[in-house]
Design a protein around this nucleic acid. Structure first.
Lengths: 225, 225
DNA sequence: GACGTAATGAAAATTTTGCTGATCGAAGAC
DNA sequence: GTCTTCGATCAGCAAAATTTTCATTACGTC
């Protein structure tokens, strides 16, 4: 799950980042208005954490632009002001939740998951395709009710594929989404091959009715069998 | 999609090239002022990445010449300076975007696609002619909603034709655009015949309402049926 | 009809891409 | 600390795509 954190206080940002990463989220960070706007317009995120008081402009503007662009992202506003007006304005502009500083990381964490669930899974935290069920909370995957042991990367990849069933996933997109953008200049995709291989094997031996197809020269696509 | 990279730092250029090629762009590279000017005046590109600090002259001059020549190309300026003046001058001269070093390749990638879409497709990533739809993101081609399997060259060729509907495409232009400039002095066009043949067959058997006509002695033209 | 050009088919050669197993080192568990 | 697991990386192999080649046929233009 890929998250954009828009926050100018670097210490706080770092703290949030590390704890979210402990939750196995993939976190990117923008610390000012311009770079936030840029990232938002260029990439896709599963959730955006938005501080509204930013150097260079108001987070509300970012929110407005985002919502104009495409009814896409999940936004949780983080604000120092506990002002009702701000809260209403934010939610009015399409934010999905609102959190006042200071807050507990655990709460943020819970809300991220809640927002994500509401959006992608109609409130459940299960993704179910054919005989395969993935539980995001427990980070568990079951096929025909039988647990399959997946490690971190395998789980993230499967997760990403399930949420993008039948869509072409380029290897670059996969790398970016699951590994983060530090992997930019990779000159080969061995690290992907390795994980795909293992994941496929596990899916096959457990008789999952889904399959990761290769698209030669481009990437992969998850299909039902 | 054909891209000209004007950049004198060879390491960086090589890094950019390989990652863009992974996204299936066709990348050509010019490392100094003179050769950049030459390529720009000789060939056509879907997008030009322009470093403004070049040995031999300023990239701004290239930009100015380009824009004088034909209102044609998409230019993304790559600059080491994060100077507002430079940015404004560049955008003023007609650049379509501006990127400061260092940057993430994924970001460059996203911008190239954005610029291209803005220019050619009013922001969409679909090209639709009669019952044929090409999705640039998914690299898919559908006729009457039915997927047609195209290999890379076939896809690129079709793409090029669709964007230049009813226009005469010389074989040289096709070779240059889809294969790149290493193929320049080809003494025969067998490689084109081969791909055109296969592409035509696929279009026909799927009842696409478009046709690749031959123009004797010159090249091809894509027309609606 | 003669000539150059284009299309087709088949096949081989080459290059690119993908998969696998093995190894090695780092991070985390105990 | 040791042990275990995980993931990155390498090399070798397999698979697929792409480029050649060549021969044959068809087409256009003069």
């Amino acid at each position: 799950m890929k998250i954009l954190l828009i926050e100018d206080e670097l210490d706080l940002a770092e703290a949030i980042r590390t704890s979210l990463e402990k939750e196995l989220f993939l976190v990117e960070h923008a610390s000012d208005f311009a770079s936030a706007l840029e990232k938002v317009s260029l990439y896709e995120y599963d959730c955006i954490l938005l501080d509204i008081m930013l150097p260079g402009g108001s987070g509300m503007d970012i929110l407005a632009k985002m919502k104009k662009k495409q009814g896409g992202e999940n936004v949780i506003i983080i604000s120092a002001k506990d002002s009702l007006d701000d809260k209403l304005e934010g939610l009015d502009l399409g934010a999905d939740d609102y959190l006042t500083k200071p807050f507990h990381i655990a709460e943020l964490n819970a809300r991220i998951k809640a927002v994500f669930r509401r959006k992608n899974l109609q409130g459940s935290n299960l993704i179910e395709i054919k005989n395969t069920i993935v539980d995001l909370n427990e980070r568990e995957c079951k096929v025909d009710g039988k647990l399959i042991e997946l490690n971190r990367k395998e789980f993230d990849i499967l997760n990403y594929f399930l949420l993008n069933k039948n869509r072409l996933i380029t290897k670059n997109a996969l790398a970016e989404h699951v590994w983060g953008d530090h992997i930019d200049q990779a000159d080969n995709f061995d690290f992907i091959y390795y994980q795909i291989k293992n994941l496929r094997k596990k899916l096959q031996t457990s008789n999952a009715q889904i399959e990761i197809q290769s698209v030669y020269g481009v990437g992969y696509k998850l299909t039902e069998l």
